[in-house]
Simulated assay, not measured.
Amino acid sequence: MTETSQPRGRGQKSGRSPLGRGSSAGLIVCFAFKPQESEDGMSITLYAQPYDITATGFYFSAVEEFDGKAAKLVNDFGEQVEEFEIQFIDGDQIDCELAKAIDLNQANFKDYLTCAQNWEYWEKTNVIIAVGECGYEFDPQASPDRYWIDVYHVGSMRELAEQFVEDGLYGDIPESLQYYIDYDAIARDLAIDYSAVSVAGEYLIYRAS
């Protein structure tokens, strides 16, 4: 579970955002927990914070819920509220980091909820790296594997070097010579084309083709 705040009780009204008035989607903080690949995942809770300081925001977990609550929301002067900052409140850490990577906002939160519900864990990881680290645009209609990103679940660049040697990427090396391999030198060479990143609490190495 990942929480970006300690939200108030769902039945309580507050004129303040759970994250504070000065917050923004770009400041989403995803606390690190042991990564898990849950089949069902947690329900995502978002908060719609009106930019109108005389209106009170609301929690929601589905597009229909947002549409219904937003349609009824008025400010202290009875005027319809139309513009909101969308904040990630609760859910799996991988979904929190996806929200952060795509800069969750009113224009993309509907696509975000659809993708978070339908994508596999590895697909979310790919998009987090592609958009958050490599500068690609978030395209909810495109397949997450279109970015041609190779992801390796290893603990260090040296470990990746050892894996590549074991997999035969450097040719068939006789066992008698493997003790003389300078894995640290290979790791330094790999670092030219490969980068490290932490996603949902897991250390990963990736290469963008």
Rank of each mutant, 00 (worst) to 15 (best):
T2H: 12
E3Q: 14
S5A: 15
Q6K: 11
R8Y: 08
R10T: 13
G11P: 01
Q12W: 09
S14V: 05
R16A: 00
P18Q: 01
G22T: 08
G26K: 13
V29T: 11
C30M: 04
F31E: 15
F33D: 09
E37P: 00
E39A: 12
E39Q: 14
M42A: 10
I44P: 04
Y51L: 06
Y51F: 15
Y51N: 01
G57N: 09
G57E: 04
G57K: 07
F58T: 09
S61C: 06
S61Q: 10
D67I: 01
K69V: 00
A71D: 12
V74C: 05
E82I: 09
E82F: 07
I86D: 01
I86F: 06
Q87P: 02
F88H: 05
D92Q: 12
I94A: 10
D95I: 01
L98R: 10
L104P: 00
Q106I: 11
D111G: 13
Y112Q: 06
T114L: 10
N118E: 12
E120W: 10
E120N: 12
C134R: 12
G135L: 00
E137V: 08
E137W: 04
E137C: 04
F138V: 02
F138S: 09
D139W: 11
P140M: 09
Q141R: 12
Q141A: 15
S143N: 04
W148N: 15
V151D: 07
H153F: 13
L160D: 11
Q163R: 13
F164M: 15
V165R: 10
G168W: 06
D172Y: 12
I173F: 00
Y180C: 04
D182P: 04
D184R: 14
D189K: 12
A191Q: 07
V199Y: 03
V199N: 01
L204T: 05
I205S: 02
A208G: 02
A208P: 01
A208C: 14
A208D: 13
